[in-house]
Design a protein around this nucleic acid. Sequence first.
DNA 1: TGGATATTCTACCTCCAGGTGGGAAATGAG
DNA 2: CTCATTTCCCACCTGGAGGTAGAATATCCA
Lengths: 141, 141
Amino acid sequence: MRLLKTSEYAIRVLSHMARNEAERYSVSSLHRALGIPYKYLGRLMRKLTKAGLVDAARGKTGGYVITRPPGSIHLIEIVEAVEGLEDFDHCILGFEACSSDQPCPLHDQWGVQRDSIRRMLEEASLEDLALKFEEESEASD
Amino acid sequence: MRLLKTSEYAIRVLSHMARNEAERYSVSSLHRALGIPYKYLGRLMRKLTKAGLVDAARGKTGGYVITRPPGSIHLIEIVEAVEGLEDFDHCILGFEACSSDQPCPLHDQWGVQRDSIRRMLEEASLEDLALKFEEESEASD
DNA sequence: TGGATATTCTACCTCCAGGTGGGAAATGAG
DNA sequence: CTCATTTCCCACCTGGAGGTAGAATATCCA
């Protein structure tokens, strides 16, 4: 009952980048700021680039930038890009045929839970997260 | 956002066994009834034996039997025996320090979801599942 | 007593997430 | 031009989930 670690990483990276929308972040600066393993982070950023969430520039002044306004990027999109959403349609008891026609004993209950989680990820934007993080760092001053 | 396949297997096996509380089920009969890979199922049954959920008997009339009344065994116990409950205390954004004192942006929302799922698994017993399965097989007659 | 049927054990295998290492290729600064 | 900094691409390693193979051990029954 959790996201893949890579999805967690992706959300943390992007909400960090959302605090300065226009700034170019290098892998090494993100690594220093967030403590995510350097090499692994590089591969993750490439993945986010291919997914169109960030833009990459090589060379000395290169780095990554968010492609769209943070308010328009919701967590569900990040999760989808990194690990896909297949598991959100998965029966909690693993029955292939489970559906509203042929429901497993927990079908309805689990459906409510799953939709609720999905809605949470659909409604939370990077801007929301970035703002909350701002508040926290101000509070700790 | 799903249980391990092994937890799904375990729930299916045990709710099947719950339909005839006193019967001894061999691995091969469970394999035939449920389609779970034979050898893998053997290892799972050994695990459930060590967890105390079933009792094993060797030899010609041997097999497995549920140790306690199905109404007293809840899904959360099965999940705990197979995959543990660590992930149920895990921050949705993966922050180590995330707590009510130092909440991540989604801490409260995710807490509600997580507790709700946990409660579903705590309240559903093997007896409940077995009864529902009975209803289904009657309906398909 | 011996065979048939059952659990049990050890050892492997494949696949994927997570993580590491070495070097390419691109690009701006000096 | 040269060099440092960056992204990019390659191969590899580890651990765990899921799955398979073969034999050892225990028990009933004829």
